[in-house]
Nucleic acid binder design. Structure first.
Lengths: 171, 171
DNA sequence: TACGCCATGTAAATTGTTACATGATTCC
DNA sequence: GGAATCATGTAACAATTTACATGGCGTA
């Protein structure tokens, strides 16, 4: 997964591991945000597999390794990109919590959901805050990904707000 | 994660590992469906930790281990259940695909999304098919979890259908 | 001079999947 | 008699996170 994400970023532009992480933070960050502990080993592995090549440079005294994707790497990436799109699975841990909330006092459940709503609104605001940063750089699909984030958070907030109301109306 | 899911199921009713998997299949299955390869080792671990106890029985010649949660196990589970609800992360791999679709011919993208839509509709139908099975057994929250699934699939289908239209209107 | 950011990397631990191995019962 | 289902478990592998380790640059 992370391998393909890296190949995808390098497809667009040659970059260092550090830069890849920055790019992720301002684009895919709200749904996938890999750590350096997975990025650097993945880069090494991809280099060993002959899919990317590294150029070591020194800029302003800072040691940097700029990775470039080659034809083999592009082929691997496009094969992955052409496969069937998987349905969303896992990452929906909140549902596991919801599923068992019958075991908790109702007042505590309400509080937990109100906290979730606050977190969702903060995440929504953060995603919207990123929009101006990418607006001129992003292509149609990158922009759509960002849009999905906004729409998804709106859906989640709406759903849990409705749910809270249903919870009140109960009994 | 799987540990807490197991504790939760055992909280409701003493069960075997096999039964836990069946229960998951007809309730949390659409967002979490653990394999036996994770369930059985988890049960063993929880027993070692003194959170559940096993009773070995033979029913109709079939060897069974029925697990029961104890007070310590209930305490651990309720502590987990009372923690803040995490925001949805990962499991949204389709977004990573969408993000890079600018690198693919537009016709191929349309086809991939149409296939995704078909899969989403099948998953939606499957979730709805489960509804009558759980209707009388499920409590308010279990039922809501199922509802979320339906609403979530509806949201996804609507979003990608709109997106396809925007894709057509482009250029 | 100390803090924050730039920049790369390793090691241990965690969490889970897939594939394999075994064997009984039930239904056709 | 054979397939599907019931039922438990192990071993190898995969993917990733956290914490650690290192060091230079810019700036207040």
């Amino acid at each position: 997964m992370i391998d393909n994400m890296i190949l995808g970023f390098l497809f667009k532009k040659a970059m260092s591991g550090y830069e890849i992480k920055q790019m992720m933070g301002m684009s895919t960050g709200y749904f996938i945000d890999a750590s350096y502990g997975s990025i650097y080993p993945a880069l090494k592995k991809l280099e060993d597999q002959g899919l990317i090549t590294a150029a070591e440079t020194v800029e302003n005294g800072k040691f940097k390794k700029i990775y470039t994707i080659n034809q083999a790497g592009k082929a691997v990436f496009l094969r992955w990109l052409s496969g069937p799109i998987p349905l969303p699975r896992r990452g929906l841990e909140h549902l596991l919590r919801l599923f068992f909330f019958g075991l908790l006092p109702i007042e505590q459940v309400k509080e937990l959901i109100q906290n979730l709503l606050a977190d969702l609104k903060a995440a929504q605001a953060a995603t919207e805050g990123l929009e101006p940063l990418i607006k001129d750089k992003a292509d149609f699909f990158e922009f759509a990904t960002q849009q999905f984030g906004k729409d998804f958070y709106r859906f989640m907030i709406q759903w849990y707000q409705d749910f809270l109301e249903r919870l009140e109306d109960r009994v």
